[in-house]
């Protein structure tokens, strides 16, 4: 038997949503891994939850300013937004003024200071998607979900809607990303199906 076939066979390089990163087959521990916002993450309004989450995140990063964006990313991955209590803790641990942390979290588009839906629908508005009708698609999502792009979430807390400047899936334009799952050639005709599938999963 070849040395790699056993593990190689089971690996899903494409299935980002389903697979937590592992360190391949050396058994090495992956320290910093983008984990997914899942239903089983604790309640971000609970101080104990924030404290535990932050304790865990801080084990992966040196306490220096250069870690800030990675830490914010981890936090965003956990809750889909950045709870203020967590930002306070980061300010304290990294010794960075809170104002600077807010500057960073409002500058970069991947962060949100407000709670967002369990699933974030990102409609790609890159050039290839634009010339294939992404604008129309985005408007249709706004209509169907009845929420404006970039703000709030649906009443049931399931979806938030965002536009993103190119997800690098230009050949499958118009592309839509729901959390980390890609959808190709989305149009008003198959948008309903996408939402049903995501609502159920």
């Amino acid at each position: 038997m070849s040395p790699k076939s056993k593990t190689g066979k089971r690996r899903d390089p494409g299935d980002v949503a389903a697979l937590e990163p592992t360190a391949g087959d050396t058994g090495a521990k992956v320290p910093a891994s983008p984990s997914k916002a899942t239903g089983d993450s604790c309640d971000p309004m609970d101080p104990v939850c924030i404290c535990d989450t932050m304790d865990e995140i801080f084990t992966h990063y040196p306490r220096e300013e250069a870690s800030l964006i990675m830490i914010l990313q981890e936090l965003q991955d956990r809750f889909n937004w950045l709870p203020d209590a967590a930002l306070e803790r980061i300010a304290e641990e990294l010794d960075i003024p809170k104002s600077r942390i807010l500057a960073v979290s409002t500058f970069y588009k991947s962060f949100s200071l407000d709670p967002r839906g369990r699933k974030v629908i990102k409609v790609c508005t890159g050039t290839a998607c634009h010339v294939r009708g992404a604008g129309m698609l985005l408007e249709e999502f706004e209509r169907v979900l009845d929420i404006p792009v970039g703000e709030g979430m649906t009443d049931d807390g399931t979806f938030s809607l965002e536009s993103v400047n190119c997800v690098g899936a230009c050949a499958m334009a118009p592309a839509v990303l729901v959390n980390d799952r890609y959808y190709a050639k989305v149009g008003p005709g198959n948008l309903g199906k996408l939402l049903t599938k995501e609502r159920e999963s």
Partner: peptide, 21 residues
């Protein structure tokens, strides 16, 4: 880029593998 989760995953994996080796 943060929009590239698979790239992050595979590169992280490769870095850890190479460190171990």
């Amino acid at each position: 880029r943060h929009e590239y989760p698979l790239a992050v995953k595979h590169l992280t994996m490769a870095i850890e593998n190479m460190k171990a080796l």
